[in-house]
Nucleic acid binder design. Structure first.
Length: 563
RNA sequence: GUCACAGUGGCUCAGUUGGAUAGAGCAACGGUCUUCUAAACCGUAGGUCGUGAGUUCAAAUCUCACCUGUGACACCA
């Protein structure tokens, strides 16, 4: 039942002269504190047409409207405040959640439409850093939110697996590397070769020529170059998979930059055919002045293609392959101009689906206020952070709950959960300075706080020999339960907002609010007491676990049953 | 210089479409485990919402200007 509609129905007869149903829909709000009521109608807008003080209007309305559907309706200053019938609301809400279980909040907004998501996208032969974490976990959460709302997400890991750096890597490997070392620890050693190359080429610039030559060989399909590239790529991917497994993230495609090599000639032909390509300073560009943008560089003066060309090919490929209804790119905010250009070029090419492309930017992670840079050695390795978090979680378990079974599994769920949740709880556009203590904190507004709340609730359910039934009364009318019930009823709307804004933090913040409210209830109310309300209280506890676990799962965070 | 993003208690951040006394968490101080997991709960203290003007019955929220920080600005991705 839509309780807001009840409020509108009650007001409509008396105010229809001045405000339409739709206007009422927009103007009715939720008071800040539930002491004031569950819905409120501010009377300011009527003051002009009625030539009366808002306070007086509120009093008049309360006297006129039909209050039977509500517990009470009162005028507080210029507001008409509606208090819902707690019994009906409680029964409806709990029944809906218990029946739907993990499907509570599902809604078919997408009708199965395909939505490719470009996410994570690390570079081969380089470690996964905290920067990649953001793209990975934001993309993963958005994918889950899309599934929940009836879309069909396709998670694409657009690997950085092509480019002149592979020429350098081959040169470095042949000069200083060994097969055994790469097999032993691929990322570390490949990165070492790469770093050494950059050190040595200062004194020996001829190394760069060698690297160029090797990359040319790779492009021309030379067997040795291709074999090495293939090997570096697969060894790197094996390493990446370890981290993705820790994070619980899976991909539908690993088609990276190399995949589009044979698809770029067509893009250039298309641009030429549409007369969009212009020569400028030796390079081929698409002019975007009418969009207020810098020109898009399509081809370098030496004939090589660029990031833009590859992304155009990828965008077109994805449209042809997936017939997407939206195409998302979870990529840092520093690249926002690139995506504006990408969309503009596609529009110039006559593709009206360019508007379905959405760049989902996120803020920068810095360390001591400075941008992280692989080349300058300022890297925070994600694997290390995750391992630190797991280790600390394990120590916490040893201290707080030493008899817990499956300690390693729980430590992993809590540690990794803390890292993921920390990344998702704030507005994704916020920059943040990396601070390990902050990331792996288990107290306060953190992932483990939500997990812990759920674990306590689960513990109660385990201890109760009685299980709740849907047939008995589910009415809870006490104030302590009321705030929880209202939050539970909000969940579907929260998911909608997260979807609309592509903002996982909306879910994370909601889970914190619900957990906080439940902890308050837990601290003040005995649940396992054999009285007539026991069934209703257990239903509430069960509903809280359903929603908390679902919210955490949308974020890609596990819900240990004990911790 | 141009564009983008941000500026809310000591620190990190909330604040749906403008609305009722600006909310949390950390840190500080004090209290609560013989009873469902104290990774919790309760309380105290702490704020010119960057600055100035404007729109409005009403502005942290909208508009403009300015200040500060970060990032991007043609042959990297």
């Amino acid at each position: 039942m839509d309780f807001k509609q009840q409020v509108i129905a009650a007001l409509e007869p008396t105010v229809s002269e001045f405000l339409s149903k739709e206007a009422l829909m927009n103007v009715i709000e939720v008071p800040k504190s539930s002491d004031l009521g569950d819905y409120a109608f501010p009377t300011f807008q009527l003051a002009k047409s009625l030539h009366k003080a808002p306070q007086q209007i509120a009093l008049d309305l309360v006297a006129k409207i039909d209050q039977t559907a509500f517990e009470k309706v009162v005028a507080t200053g210029p507001y008409v405040n509606f208090f819902l019938n707690k019994q009906t609301f409680s029964e409806e809400t709990l029944k809906t959640i218990l029946k739907a279980d993990q499907n509570y909040g599902d809604q078919d907004l997408g009708h199965g439409g395909n939505v490719p998501i470009d996410m994570s996208s690390p570079n081969i032969a380089k470690p996964i850093s905290m920067g990649h974490l953001r793209s990975t976990v934001i993309g993963n959460a958005i994918a889950k939110i899309l599934t929940k709302t009836g879309y069909h997400p396709i998670k694409i890991n657009h690997l950085g697996d092509w480019g002149t750096q592979f020429g350098k890597l081959i040169v470095a490997y042949k000069k200083w590397g060994s097969e055994a070392a790469v097999r032993e620890d691929p990322i570390t050693n490949l990165l070492n070769y790469y770093v050494r190359f950059h050190k040595e080429d200062v004194a020996h610039p001829e190394l760069d020529d060698e690297a160029r030559a090797w990359f040319k060989k790779l492009e021309d399909g030379d067997q040795e170059a291709t074999d090495l590239w293939q090997w570096f790529r697969s060894e790197s991917l094996k390493e990446f998979q370890k981290i993705y497994q820790m994070l619980g993230v899976e991909f539908d495609s690993f088609n990276g930059e190399a995949f589009y090599n044979d698809k770029m000639a067509e893009v250039i032909d298309l641009l030429k055919a549409k007369n969009l390509l212009h020569e400028s300073q030796g390079a081929e560009i698409v002019d975007l002045e009418k969009y207020g943008l810098n020109p898009a560089l399509i081809q370098k003066s030496d004939g090589a293609t660029l990031y833009m060309t590859r992304d155009l090919a990828a965008a077109i490929y994805r449209k042809r392959t997936y017939h997407f209804v939206q195409s998302l790119y979870v990529v840092g905010n520093e690249q926002s101009e690139h995506f504006q250009q990408l969309k503009a070029v596609l529009k110039e090419m006559g593709y009206n689906w360019a508007d379905q492309i959405v760049h989902i930017p996120f803020g920068l992670i810095t360390e001591n206020g400075k941008k992280l840079s692989t080349r300058q050695g300022r890297v925070i390795l994600l694997e290390e952070v995750l391992n630190d978090a797991i280790r600390l979680a394990k120590a916490q378990i040893k201290e707080k709950n030493p008899d817990l079974p499956n300690q390693d599994k729980v430590a992993k769920e809590v540690g990794v959960g803390a890292v993921i949740f920390h990344d998702l709880k704030n507005d994704r556009m916020d920059n943040f300075d990396f601070n390990l203590e902050e990331v792996v904190r288990f107290e306060g507004e953190t992932g483990p706080y939500v997990q812990y709340t759920n674990a306590r609730a689960q513990s109660i359910l385990r201890k109760s020999s009685l299980s709740y039934t849907l047939d008995d009364a589910l009415a809870l009318t006490d104030d302590a339960a009321w705030d929880i019930l209202k939050l539970l009823a909000d969940y579907p709307e929260v998911i909608q907002r997260a979807l609309k804004l592509y903002e996982p933090s909306v879910i994370a913040k909601y889970s914190l609010r619900l957990a906080k409210q439940f902890n308050k209830y837990y601290a003040h109310t005995r649940i396992l007491v054999d009285d007539p309300q026991l069934n209703a209280r257990l239903s509430l506890v069960k509903s809280v676990t359903i929603v908390l676990e679902n919210a955490l799962s949308l974020l890609g965070v596990a819900s240990p049953q004990e911790m």
